[in-house]
Design a protein around this nucleic acid. Structure first.
Lengths: 226, 226
DNA sequence: CGGCGGTGTGACAGACATGTGACAAGGTTT
DNA sequence: AAACCTTGTCACATGTCTGTCACACCGCCG
């Protein structure tokens, strides 16, 4: 699973430099050049971590952070002019995960990003999903059932991950093919059915005896809500 | 302890000017006027920071940097013609700590040096990682197992470092290629597998008898959590 | 020049995930 | 009710991925 970083900085040159560097390190990168854009990008659910400059037009970084913290627990690293202690203190009080003074060296930033990601994974951030007695860890790609590990193949894991991400709503077969197998379904393709079948066998029934994964005939599958 | 700076620039006049200035500021200074000399000086263990001109005879600054980064984590400040974005990007990707455009004012350079030194001292605290009976020192690039040194090649060390940095999470093969080998994997590339194989042999099983490095088929590898 | 250690490639076997054909068991449409 | 489609699942063939041995290559050093 690729990590997506949002870089919010009005210095387009620096932002672009960082983008290239992080992409070369295997991250996906999005850019925003003012506060308002940063906020809406960050709330799009497709961003795993935000690098946020304090000084930005439209809406400054601290306000963006304040808004973000109202309903999200997204890891945030603040960038700010060197020695600006006041901003630093404010940022940390508002819940920034780290603080890096400008000018910053990309390698250091990378190390901080990894540290923050590790912390947020460890503390059960959004990378662990739970449903019934299942606990799905997206970082280690391990599934626990009542605390015990269940051996899933990589594809089975992806299918379950996709279903759990949309828990309570139907996921079309096509979406499952795209998301878990990374391809369009072909005619008479039964592979997703097969993987669902295997998942059901490996997971067994839910604690209440019901089937965990419901078939929505002609549409797709759905992880049942309790 | 006095800080020793290596100035690598083929412009002897400029280099000498800088030498005088830095010596008057209390640094020890060494000079190198071509890339090859710079590299051997820098590897002599008596240099604390390198100022590296990009344009040099024998071996250009970027190549020197690349070589240096293979087994050292010495702070490096790149000097280059103004506006040379390509060099700037390359330098930062290769792990330069800062970038100063020429012609440079010695006082500005001094400020950057102090900033870089401060940063590299500060990040020194993070330079030892532990897992099971292993202790990995990122500064000296030495691995200890139960206190005894294990001989690893530079690449093996980088692979292990990357895995330990993400302990408990899966690291994709592509990330390992980018991070440890500094390149994209090519078709049928087995080198990372080979290095992992060698690492397993050299490290042996974990204290509890399990495999330290787990294979996540189709995805990558993972340093196991206890 | 020759040896040496690190690195990457080719080859091969084995393990394993994946997907397909087949058939049964529903559900849906006409 | 009959024809048709969808789904569940078994068994199996297939292809991919991995571990590892052997070896070639390259830079380095004596």
């Amino acid at each position: 699973m690729q990590t997506t970083i949002l870089i919010a900085d009005d210095d387009t040159e620096l932002a672009d430099l960082l983008r290239q560097f992080f992409e070369s390190e295997g991250f996906a990168v999005r850019l925003a050049h003012d506060g308002r854009a940063a906020l809406s990008e960050a709330e799009s659910d497709e961003v795993d971590l935000v690098i946020l400059d304090v000084m930005m037009p439209e809406m400054n970084g601290l306000d963006v952070l304040k808004e973000l913290r109202k309903d999200k627990d997204l890891p945030v690293i603040m960038l700010t002019a060197r020695g600006d202690d006041l901003d630093r203190i404010l940022g940390l009080e508002l819940g920034a995960d780290d603080y890096v003074p400008k000018p910053c060296n990309p390698r250091e930033l990378l190390a901080r990003i990894r540290a923050v990601m590790r912390r947020s994974e460890g503390s059960g951030g959004h990378s662990v999903m739970q449903a019934d007695d299942l606990e799905l860890n997206q970082g280690s790609r391990v599934l626990l059932k009542s605390g015990e590990q269940v051996d899933l193949t990589s594809t089975e894991f992806s299918v379950l991950q996709c279903l759990m991400q949309h828990r309570g709503s139907v996921v079309s077969k096509r979406d499952l093919y795209l998301s878990a197998l990374g391809r369009e379904p072909v005619a008479h393709d039964r592979s997703v059915d097969m993987h669902v079948s295997n998942l059901r066998r490996k997971l067994g029934p839910a604690p209440d005896g019901e089937n965990r994964i419901e078939t929505i005939r002609g549409i797709g599958y759905q992880y049942r809500v309790s």
